[in-house]
């Protein structure tokens, strides 16, 4: 919780030369152009501090997923500078600096839930006992302690996505990248998982970059909301969002919550004409 003060700072336009150690992601004038000339990102600058929970929000096709994929080195920027932990995204990926949660659980159906969670640990050659301990630990963390020996397809969609979060956490990366992880789930499941994720984030103190197109979800989870415009994607506005730490779903009825949500909505409208 010591970082809370740092979190409340508005996004600093930090000097590019020597980013302070607390900067996890730094993007400067980032551009991504796909084969075929489609420009997905145009001049995006973004700084994410350690412990931040940053949501990228915007209409479909605004490049928010592309931004996340660029950070994860799944897409190569065509111009601009991007650093993750002070290194290139490629180096960061090879360091296993981040865990990535996809839109779908992407669990391997031939592995049990526990062995899905230990998949990255096997790739990192952790000893078997350690792997088992981690699987138990993170299954407990996402509230699925008894399900380790089941197969993913025997679980509900929400449970599967929790397994995929546990898998992303299992090798203890300091950065979690989430690409609309709850987009395919029903509203009730989604509420539950939002609560869960918020508690998890507070307990682990990780840095999270979260892509969503749900305004309530972004406001509920984030310390900062980055609103992006339609193609080519640009940052329209960064909205700080400081709701009390121990939050329950009811907070969504509070005036503070609605004020932030209102700002986000305004920003979205400004960056996007609906005609």
């Amino acid at each position: 919780m010591a970082d809370l003060a740092a979190l409340s700072r508005p996004a600093a336009k930090a000097p590019a030369a020597h980013p302070p150690a607390s900067v996890v992601i730094e993007a400067d004038n980032l551009e991504v152009v796909f084969a075929g000339g489609i420009q997905a990102l145009a001049g995006v600058s973004l700084t994410v501090q350690r412990g931040d929970f940053v949501s990228l929000i915007g209409p479909s096709g605004c490049g928010k997923t592309t931004m996340l994929r660029a950070i994860a080195d799944l897409v190569t920027p065509s111009a601009g500078r991007l650093a993750v932990n002070g290194k290139t995204p490629g180096e960061a990926r090879r360091d296993r600096a981040y865990g990535y949660v996809f839109q779908a659980p992407a669990l391997f159906p031939w592995r049990t839930v526990a062995r899905n969670i230990t998949l990255p640990l096997e790739l990192m050659h952790l000893p078997r006992a350690e792997r088992a301990a981690r699987a138990a630990e993170y299954l407990g963390l996402v509230g699925l302690a008894e399900f380790g020996r089941k197969f993913p397809w025997q679980l509900s969609g929400g449970m599967q996505q929790r397994v995929s979060i546990a898998r992303a956490l299992s090798f203890r990366p300091s950065l979690l990248l989430m690409d609309e992880p709850f987009g395919a789930l029903d509203e009730i499941t989604r509420d539950g998982l939002n609560l869960h994720l918020n508690a998890l984030w507070r307990r682990t103190g990780m840095t999270v970059v979260f892509v969503t197109h749900s305004i309530p979800e972004a406001v509920f989870l984030s310390t900062r909301i980055v609103v992006m415009s339609a193609r080519p994607g640009r940052v329209i506005e960064e909205i700080p969002c400081q709701l009390p730490a121990g939050r329950a779903l009811e907070i969504r009825d509070s005036p503070e919550f609605n004020a932030v949500a209102h700002r986000v909505r305004q920003a979205l409208r400004a960056g996007h004409s609906y005609d």
Binding site: A72, D73, L74, R93, R94, D95, R96, Y98, G99, Y100, F102, Q103, A104, A106, F108, W110, L119, P120, E122, L123, M124
Partner: peptide, 26 residues
Amino acid sequence: AGAMEHELMQSYAAGYSATLIKLRLP
């Protein structure tokens, strides 16, 4: 094997043979 599963392995910086054995052959 799906694109998403491939990207997952890529995010773990898994090499060709690891991806082959853990993902593509199964």
